[in-house]
Design a protein around this nucleic acid. Structure first.
Lengths: 152, 152
DNA sequence: CGCTTGCCTGGAGTGCACTCCAAGTCTCTA
DNA sequence: TAGAGACTTGGAGTGCACTCCAGGCAAGCG
């Protein structure tokens, strides 16, 4: 048996709050890629890459071929950002995007997909809590020793 | 500003419970690599790799050069496993291992390192909870539509 | 008109954390 | 004692999620 499970990676991620310090320019509904960069915190590279791999619904273009994102696109990117933060693999998100494109008859499968992921997230929260206990324990020990040596 | 934050990856990880379904063979204190594989759920490749990169304290060898792990090594691997599950980068864990090797005068820095990581973990738990809300919301919608279409 | 700035593309490169390979040595069981 | 299976090494390969690059187009400005 090999280890097939993937490992979570560091998330020193900007929090949701950080990432959205730039509000949506109101009411225009035709955002340039750099506006979306400011809004989402994703790089322009990443936004184009999301499109290439099918993680974005079709993005509108200006008459010269530049991308123009809508509010709906930003909503979608909000969701993708959430799922990304919980560690859903990009491939799964692409699958979900596909189901959305296919229309209403995929509701059941979308529900299954999200439910499975929700279980993952719950499991992960439990794991994190159990690690928190270990960290608390270790930190207490170090803190106690430090206090002892400082107080002489 | 580019996105410098890393993203969590999928953790369909065996839970702690799964990973330790194989108990420590009691009292021998000289485990072969395959026993450690069973105990930790890590692959032998990974165990050797951990050693190469300095993430393990020195591991004992048999007279013919095969690895013999002690209970202390298993304890260390338990801790590493916990940190790994919380997404601490391997480089940080290596740094921590280094500090441990250097002795008691590194207590303060070890405490700092773990405390910083604890903050990361807390932040992540909060993020996961907020995503859970979004998932609940979406799933409710799908479930409601499914019920509506099933009931006709 | 030239310059800067922003955007476009396909494809190559990066960093992380493994994961595997080849070729040889050791250990255990029948 | 023979053969299967476990263990050893350095180095190469893999998969994921970006990240960057070269080369080019389009708009605005002095």
């Amino acid at each position: 048996m090999t280890v097939t499970d993937r490992v979570p990676m560091s998330v020193r991620a900007c929090s949701q709050l950080d990432r959205q310090r730039h509000a949506r320019p109101q009411g225009r509904d035709r955002y340039t890629i750099s506006e979306v960069v400011d809004y989402t915190g994703l790089s322009a590279h990443t936004l184009r890459w999301y499109e290439r791999i099918g993680l974005m619904p079709h993005v509108d273009r200006s008459h010269t071929g530049q991308r123009r994102y809508t509010d709906k696109d930003l909503d979608w990117l909000d969701l993708v950002g959430k799922l990304r933060l919980t560690g859903m693999p990009v491939a799964d998100m692409v699958r979900y995007a596909q189901l959305v494109r296919e229309g209403d008859h995929t509701f059941a499968e979308r529900e299954r997909l999200l439910s499975a992921h929700r279980e993952d997230v719950r499991r992960r929260i439990a794991e994190l809590h159990s690690t928190l206990d270990v960290l608390d324990y270790k930190i207490d020990i170090y803190a106690a020793r430090r206090r002892a040596s400082e107080g002489v």
